[in-house]
């Protein structure tokens, strides 16, 4: 802050001495006001990212402090958005830090009326078992016209188009190896 902070404790005195008689600015500043700093300059690190909403691909800077996201704003260097964001892009911090976000596995048993909790590894084991079973139960070595197809009609998938390319690649690779072919994506909807 260019102006040095006056030592006089009582703003009224500062009004008399600092040329701010009407108490409009320099004389009435509190200590906190003098020491204010934006979160963007006190962050530990900045991750360079891309907005998850539409396909324009606006560059984003994510500011992190004490392992928490404290600000997400446009990346001025990006030739795509030149630092600008739309309302959804600007709400990215609200998205990733929302209190409504699920952080534990929820499980609904057949005929159940309420959610139950599951821990991560148990849930993964249960899903793996079901994948193996459903794959085998609906396996088709030959289709109804006796053509060799080596596939399972038991497993289907519908992905959103916010999946990364790397994720899409592993998903398609795994399902294809499993013989699951009813693999679809929002790109067609």
């Amino acid at each position: 802050m260019a102006e040095s902070r006056s030592l006089l404790p009582w703003p009224v005195l500062r009004q008399l001495t600092s040329g701010d008689l009407l108490g409009r600015g320099k004389a009435v500043r509190s200590r906190r006001t003098d020491e204010v700093e934006p979160r963007t300059s006190t962050a530990d690190r900045v991750a360079r990212s891309v907005c998850p909403y539409c396909a324009v691909g606006c560059g984003q800077k994510i500011f992190v402090k004490d392992e928490k996201i404290v600000q997400i704003e446009g990346d001025p260097d990006s030739p795509v958005n030149r630092g600008r964001l739309c309302p959804k892009g600007s709400a990215s911090k609200n998205l990733v830090t929302s209190s409504l976000r699920e952080t534990t596995i929820k499980y609904r048993r057949p005929h159940g009326t309420e959610w139950e909790d599951l821990d991560l590894t148990t849930a993964m084991e249960m899903v793996a078992d079901r994948v193996v079973k459903s794959r085998r139960d609906a396996w088709q070595e030959l289709d109804e016209k006796d053509r060799r197809v080596r596939r399972t009609m038991g497993i289907a998938s519908l992905g959103g188009a916010t999946l990364d390319n790397e994720e899409n690649y592993l998903i398609k690779k795994l399902f294809t190896a499993m013989g699951a072919i009813q693999i679809e994506n929002q790109a067609r909807i």
Binding site: E3, A27, E73, L85, C86, P87, K88, S90, A91, N94
Partner: peptide, 29 residues
Amino acid sequence: DAGYTDAPKRKGFFTDTSVCIGCKACEVA
């Protein structure tokens, strides 16, 4: 007038509503 001796130039906004598309990014940001 408020007592600052070497204040920087006065900052402000100019809002050109002829190119506003009502997206409300300003409200959210």
